[in-house]
Design a protein around this nucleic acid. Structure first.
Lengths: 196, 196
DNA sequence: TCATACAGTGACCGATCGTGCTTTTTTAGA
DNA sequence: TCTAAAAAAGCACGATCGGTCACTGTATGA
């Protein structure tokens, strides 16, 4: 049997869990609310996940998949280095402003909430963020030939991520529409300085 | 009567609430846990706060007071502009790394958690962050004579805050000890560019 | 078509949630 | 020291928490 129905339901549960976690935080997601939102009974959820934690784990994992797909979407077709970095940065800003209009970026929410809560959720998050960071670092290394140093590339990736975080707060909490302009200006200056 | 005992207990409750909110998030703080941690019964808490929300409000407010006292501590004695900004930035990094070793910065946690949850908590947070931001902006304006433009100052304050956020993630979630070096280097470059 | 594996329900568990109400213990001013 | 007020405990409430279990309908592969 290829359990088509079950997989579809499971996907809806995962998506809804991610949605709620992005808004209220993982620690404040309740099985009852998720069940009601997807039109199931609480006990129905347990046919798809053995525990709440397994459900959250799937939500975070799938959230990261969506994040990568969204941000890297057109990047492969672009030449490495600056064009790719600019595309990814813009996608990343969109990801905060549009795609996640309700709740903000699940990953950022998780990063702040879980940074001091050991467990599988935190482990998964760290691993995936580190992989993503390595990808950015590699892209910065492609900025110059001969390439810049490892440290310089990490420094640049650090700043890139910082501007994304700053943009998120400026846009979502402070409701400042200039957030995007600030972030883009800061990133452009970073690229100019790094590429030289 | 000057209710000395009551005030002391209230202060302990507020501090403990802030501590737990920084770790688990405001939405996941429970009265039972707070009560047990300060050595009271649940109902004892209600002699000091009319509701859980009032308690959280007090915790956030006091958390911000502590944040300001810590970060601005020695800044008043320093000349305006660069010396002050550098002191504040270093204090801010310390605030993340040392003072809040367990739980991280309460304000940052609140900023990410509450950015899409309307209510008095979010209102308080926004107001206080905006005031703090205005203070930073004024300090950047003092960097040059004649001063830089309003927009440039806001842009600089945005980047300063961004590096703080980046440092927090790099240090607390990714456990990278180079976080401080990255943040300081980025901030120094920002000051050099802005001051010129 | 038919058996069966799977999706989903509803009742229920013990624990804990936030919050009242009443009573007891502490505290501090006179 | 005595007393009035403040501080805290005790208890109970309805709701909800994550989770189990026995059961039923249904979709699917043979």
């Amino acid at each position: 049997m290829s359990m088509r129905k079950g997989e579809a339901t499971r996907a809806r549960i995962v998506a809804e869990t991610g949605r709620q976690a992005a808004i209220r935080g993982f620690g404040a997601v309740s099985l009852g609310d998720v069940a009601e939102a997807v039109g199931l009974s609480k006990s129905g959820l347990f046919k798809h996940f053995e525990s709440k934690e397994a459900m959250e784990l799937a939500a975070l994992d799938q959230g990261f998949d969506r994040f990568l797909a969204f941000n890297w979407a057109n990047a492969d077709e672009l030449p490495p280095g600056r064009p790719r970095l600019e595309a990814v940065f813009d996608n990343w800003l969109d990801w905060t402003e549009v795609e996640n209009a309700a709740g903000g970026c699940l990953i950022n929410q998780a990063a702040v909430e879980l940074d001091d809560q050991p467990g599988p959720l935190r482990d998964l998050l760290r691993m995936r963020i580190q992989r993503w960071r390595a990808r950015l670092k590699a892209e910065f290394l492609a900025l110059r030939d001969p390439p810049i140093s490892e440290t310089e590339a990490e420094q640049a990736a650090f700043q890139m991520k910082s501007f994304i975080l700053g943009h998120s707060e400026q846009r979502r909490l402070l409701d400042d529409e200039r957030a995007r302009a600030y972030a883009r200006a800061a990133f452009k200056a970073l690229l100019d300085r790094t590429q030289a």
